[in-house]
Design a protein around this nucleic acid. Structure first.
Lengths: 91, 91
DNA sequence: CAGATAATTAGCTAAGTATCTAATTTTAAG
DNA sequence: CTTAAAATTAGATACTTAGCTAATTATCTG
């Protein structure tokens, strides 16, 4: 879970995730949309992959990335927990 | 919103938030629970405060910190958006 | 296999951050 | 006003990370 939060801490990576909401994209398609180098974007994608926020699948010469919505759900549940007081009312 | 995600990226800060789920705590009470120095915890609290994840209120010699659940809700809604596909089904 | 395209990895640098100790502020009590 | 307790801020250092260029891997095509 630490990797997830660390991955979400970078604005470029959050933009990548936002882009992927529209559907799977190849590494190159994603890199085209950002001012950074392809290599830099590739590194970001690696971090998102390690955090399991995206899934990667090679398709010939291309690598296709897509959102892993399951992990998002987990993060949301994690945070929702924090909006409620803890079980024991020991405040 | 960037400050919020950056604040959540640190495990110590997430632990502090978890602790505050049980109710408001003073700076000293929080610092006691962690191996780091009081100064370090104070700095973490400042970051959480800047991100609006916690609210601080001075009470005599003490400063009382409490969760700002409103901001948590916002983060959750932010993430929930990402679990659904974007409006235009242009995948 | 050779060449081209897609993508990642390696190595480096600059900027950011977590932590510590020491100094400073703030409030309360004698 | 002086001392003490609570908390933050300042300054320094070690570590991490985002970004670049260059090199490398992987796949396809002729």
């Amino acid at each position: 879970m630490n990797a997830v939060f660390r991955a979400l801490a970078d604005p470029t990576r959050r933009e990548i995730l936002k882009l992927l909401r529209a559907g799977p994209r190849t590494s190159g398609e994603i890199a085209d949309r950002f001012p950074s180098t392809w290599a830099t974007i590739s590194r970001h994608l690696g971090i998102l992959r390690d955090a399991n926020l995206v899934l990667a699948e090679r398709d010939g010469q291309n690598v296709r990335y897509e959102l892993n919505t399951t992990v998002f759900q987990e993060v949301v549940e994690h945070l929702l927990d924090w909006t409620k007081p803890a079980r024991r009312p020991n405040a």
